[in-house]
Each structure stands twice: as structure tokens, then as C-alpha cells.
């Protein structure tokens, strides 16, 4: 049985962003409860690891306390069987962090960072770990936008082979981690695209450079382009059956070339 490392995230009352070794995993709204179980194995490394939460906003205290939806910030690192639904409350927790200030504690200065470290036995070394450390200077930014434009053009033209050619590292590293092979994963992507694009329903939102924010993460070795409007993925559009699609990408410079690594 293949197992996956995942986080059991349960947050309410805090707008925060969760990082694993500097890689942004998810963001939570301040006003609604958020629960999710993202798998994060592709961001875990041999030796020292860090899971961190940056708290950007705290919801004001409410007059009525709902015991079934309390204020909380809980992140648990868990292990579970790949492809299975682990019922809530039955997660196999390895470790985790909880932010639970006492009522009399002074409010933290925002943004407030909560983190914990843990060690893992030796495992694979991911390409992003050894990627070049980037700085977002004009030349790098211009080159990045060229790369993003190329990806966008692939999506607009529905050129899945072209798109896959820029994600070789991602498929090579993630497919075994998630119980498949790069070839099978590519075939699955092509199949998914044909379903999303049936009856000509595939549309791609325009890529406007001025609306793209480049986020350096993982010590500057990875860049995540985000929409300045909503912090969502820059590659997105509409598809068949009223679905909206998106393609979050994390980019590194590998051997001098930009590559989609996650």
C-alpha cells in the first residue's frame, strides 16, 4: 500500500498561508472555516523540514461561541493510504502545530509566523532543491514572462504535448509519488483535457503581465506566479459542463532553463 504524507488542516478565524519548506500550500479565509487534507510529499526533503503558518489577519471575537465551529488553527502532519478517503477524525497523525493563544494573551503583531521543524529520513532529492536561487531582477522577470507566455500559448492552442514538454520534471518526480508513471499521468492529462475541451468549451483567460505577481519561495529556488486580483493561479479558464479549470504552476531554473517543477 502506497502511503502519502498529507496535512490535516483545520483553521477558523485566521487568514493565513501555510508553507512546507517555504512552498505555499494553501491560503485560508478569515471569516469562514477551512478544512483540507493536502498531500505535501513533493515538498518534503531529507533531514530538516519546516511547516509554517503565516497569520495575516485574525477575526474579531464573536459574541456567540459555536462549539461546533470554534476558532482554531490546527495543522497536523499525517500519513495515510494513497487514493483512500480517510474519515475525519481517523487520521494517523505524526506531528503538527496548534496556535491557541489564551484569552488574556495580547494579540500578536501581524503578520505572525508559527512554525515547527521535524526531521525526515533520507529520501529523494527534488530538482527544486538544487535549482538556482533566483532574484526577480528585470532580466529574470522578462525571461519568466516569456516562459509564462509560452505556457499560456500552449494552453490557448490546446497543445498538450507542448504543455507536457515544459513539465517533464514535475511529471517525473510526482508520478511515482502518487502511484502512477509519467506516461500514465500524461495520458490522464490528455484524457482530462479532451473532456474539459469537448464541444469547443475550452477557454483560457488572457495572461496580462501587469496582473501577474511573482512570488519567490523555497529560499528563492521556486517561483509561483499568482493573479494579482485574487491570488489564484494565472492559468485558468472555463471548460465544459460549467467547470472552471486552473493550472497552478511552480517554476524553477534547472540547468539554466525555466521548468515547471510542481
Amino acid at each position: 500500500m502506497t502511503t502519502v504524507d498529507y496535512l490535516n488542516v483545520s483553521i477558523h478565524g485566521y487568514a493565513c498561508e501555510l508553507f512546507v519548506n517555504g512552498a505555499p500550500i494553501l491560503r485560508t479565509p478569515v471569516d469562514t472555516p477551512y478544512t483540507a487534507i493536502p498531500s505535501v510529499g513533493e515538498w518534503l526533503v531529507s533531514g530538516d523540514n519546516e511547516i509554517a503558518v503565516r497569520i495575516d489577519a485574525i477575526a474579531p471575537p464573536t459574541a456567540i461561541v459555536d462549539p461546533l465551529s470554534p476558532r482554531r488553527l490546527i495543522v497536523q502532519r499525517c500519513v495515510g493510504p494513497l487514493g483512500e478517503v480517510v474519515p475525519a477524525g481517523e487520521d494517523q497523525v505524526v506531528d503538527g502545530l496548534t496556535f491557541a493563544p489564551l484569552p488574556d494573551d495580547p494579540p500578536p503583531t501581524l503578520p505572525h509566523r508559527v512554525a515547527y521543524n521535524f526531521r525526515l529520513p533520507p529520501g529523494p532529492t527534488w530538482a527544486w532543491q538544487t535549482a538556482a536561487v533566483l532574484s526577480l531582477d528585470m532580466a529574470t522577470t522578462a525571461e519568466l514572462f516569456m516562459f509564462l507566455d509560452a505556457l499560456h500559448a500552449d494552453l490557448v492552442e490546446g497543445d498538450i504535448p507542448g504543455l507536457l514538454s515544459r513539465q517533464k520534471i514535475k511529471f517525473a518526480e510526482l508520478a511515482p509519488l502518487y502511484g502512477t508513471t509519467p506516461e500514465a499521468a500524461r495520458a490522464a492529462l490528455e484524457q482530462q483535457f479532451s473532456e474539459l475541451a469537448k464541444d469547443g468549451a475550452w477557454t483560457v483567460a488572457p495572461l496580462r503581465h501587469e496582473e501577474v505577481r511573482l512570488h519567490l519561495c523555497c529560499g528563492g529556488r521556486v517561483i509561483e506566479p499568482r493573479s494579482a486580483r485574487d491570488d489564484g493561479p494565472v492559468f485558468r479558464g472555463l471548460a465544459a459542463d460549467g467547470n472552471a479549470w486552473s493550472l497552478p504552476v511552480f517554476i524553477s531554473r534547472i540547468d539554466g532553463m525555466f521548468e515547471v517543477v510542481r
Binding site: 477558523h12 478544512t35 487534507i37 498531500s39
Partner: peptide
């Protein structure tokens, strides 16, 4: 007076995120 919350979790691997509530 209403309370509580409902969550969704998908199978491990890919994951399901609730947009909003």
C-alpha cells in the same frame, strides 16, 4: 440560531478545497 460547519475531504493524493463555505 444556527451553528456548526460541514467539511469535505477527498481521497488522499489530489485534494478537495472548498471555495468559500
Amino acid at each position: 440560531t444556527v451553528g456548526g460547519e460541514i467539511g469535505v475531504r477527498g481521497a488522499l493524493g489530489d485534494w478537495v478545497e472548498v471555495v468559500g463555505k
